[in-house]
């Protein structure tokens, strides 16, 4: 099994909400000071899904990251977890893309790689929360896709996927190669081992520029967008919290109930 996993670098989504600020000159989020970028959490679940498949089937896992300003120690995390190869689509021209231009570039890189059975993505990246790139890669490559996987089993050229639905899950069988996006119901990604970290440190990622994957700069990144970002803003939250006090937690609790009653919330 050759599995390709698409892994995005993002601003740590669990950084304190108050640390998220918008660059006043551009429509961009500023990386909060002291907060280092991380591998998108859902992409980590996708790497974990790939590793579980490799644990059973053997094979090779190739991670691909796309962007500008990729931090080498960060994007190597999939290698440290157990992936075999890392490809970086690293160039200014790839930056500020939307789902369309990102999926296009990833699709072209995957086409160049050629030999694959399965492509995994996280269900959505935690910056734009769009959840579209998996479907896009599938369309560009003419492959079937299944989203929101919580379990993937491979048997005889097919994947059996448990897909999360609004009221439970469904079991979907899809022919391979296919694109599958992975959700957190899969279960915690494994930690990198010391050995893995050592291997990752020595491993040089392959770097591809737009020309290497046969794309024009007009088709990728900001230039290749099909949606325009008009404005980025942070709505001000007014209102304050009425904290119930008391000499003991129990007394505060009673006062809370009384306050709620008074406000007709009970």
């Amino acid at each position: 099994m050759n599995v390709i996993v698409c892994v995005k670098q993002v601003i740590d989504p669990e950084a304190p909400p108050a640390s998220f600020k918008i660059d006043p000159t551009g429509n961009k989020m500023v990386t909060p000071p002291g907060v280092s970028p991380v591998v998108d959490p859902y992409a980590e679940y996708a790497v974990e899904a790939a590793l579980r498949i490799k644990d059973v089937q053997g094979g090779k896992i190739t991670a691909i990251s796309l962007g500008a300003n990729l931090v080498p120690e960060m994007v190597k995390k999939p290698l440290a977890m157990g992936a075999d190869e890392l490809i970086l689509l690293a160039d200014e021209a790839f930056a500020e893309g939307d789902s369309w231009s990102t999926a296009y570039a990833l699709g072209m890189a995957i086409k160049k790689l050629g030999d694959y059975d399965l492509i995994l993505c996280g269900r959505e990246a935690s910056d734009w929360d769009a959840g579209q790139v998996g479907s896009g890669i599938a369309e560009f490559l003419g492959l079937p896709s299944v989203s929101l996987a919580r379990k993937i089993d491979i048997t005889e050229g097919k994947a059996r996927v448990e897909r999360v639905t609004d009221d439970g899950y469904e079991v979907v069988e899809v022919s391979l190669p296919a694109v599958i996006t992975v959700s957190n119901e899969l279960g915690e990604p494994r930690y990198a081992t010391i050995k893995g970290i050592m291997i990752a440190r020595r491993k040089e990622p392959v770097v591809w520029k737009p020309a290497d994957i046969g794309v024009e700069s007009s088709q990728i990144g900001a230039a290749g967008r099909r949606s325009q970002l008009l404005k980025l803003f942070q709505p001000v939250r007014e209102g304050k919290c009425e904290v119930a006090e008391g000499d003991s937690p129990e007394e505060a609790a009673v006062n809370l109930a009384l306050k709620l009653r008074e406000a007709k919330a009970l």
Partner: peptide, 19 residues
């Protein structure tokens, strides 16, 4: 507490039974 309209600061194990 920046989102809530009402609140109690405390250990829920003590707060919740009384509440």
């Amino acid at each position: 507490f920046r989102q809530a309209h009402f609140g109690v600061v405390g250990d829920w194990k003590k707060v919740l039974p009384a509440f």
